[in-house]
Amino acid sequence: MSQRLIGLLLDALWETLAMVGVSCFLAALVGIPLGVVLLVTQRGHIAESPLFNRVVGALVNATRSTPFIILMVAIIPLTRLIVGTSIGTWAAAVPLTLAAIPFVARLAEASLREVDPGLIEAAQAMGATPRQIVAKVLIPEALPGIVAGMTITVVSLIGYSAMAGAVGGGGLGDLGIRYGYQRFEGEVMAAVVVVLIVLVSLVQWAGDRLARQLNKRLTAKQAAAI
């Protein structure tokens, strides 16, 4: 492999990691609490507020149903406002974050919904407030599921980030398109694909491992096998 190709790959890999890392961190920061809100404000839940729930739910659905490539172009004014430019790696992180927030929220909500209602009732009977139930029951119980959801998010964002080339975001996908497709350098395309496969496999492996370690319901034997 030529020195030039390695340099290109490393730069692109760094750009991808930066875009995906920043957007995943921000998406978790906003998306997980949003998932909690989506669940607990439902009718019959610990902080029910059906109207609020419907409004937030509609916003989440609207963002989720917008194709990423359209979302990216549509929010260019917002991107300019936040990072000062609409071109480059950091500019690409804005639509990525915005697309990931509702995705994370729905995945977190689904994990939180799986928590045994008996546990919530038991906590309520011991005097726990809704806030305490979220912090001490819902989140700890759903944590393995939330971690699994974040793993899915990271992998999806690595895919989405390939589209960020459209706003000059760079990254592995952009490299593959520009060199591999537009310049017919098949070697670059192949190298990009290999790097992406390794990257996604690593993320999935680490996510699975963490989720399993957090799952206290495993028997000692299963835990030892991790």
């Binding site: 045994d116 008996g118 546990l119 009732e121 038991a122 309520q124 009977a125 011991m126 005097g127 029951v137 700890p140 119980e141 944590l143 957090l214 206290k216 319901r217």
Partner: peptide, 20 residues
């Protein structure tokens, strides 16, 4: 008027917190 610590409950399926 609602659940509270002065009336705790025990269920058939224990409802213990598995992570604790």
């Amino acid at each position: 008027t609602g659940p509270g610590w002065e009336r705790t409950i025990i269920f058939q399926d224990y409802a213990l917190f598995p992570w604790a």
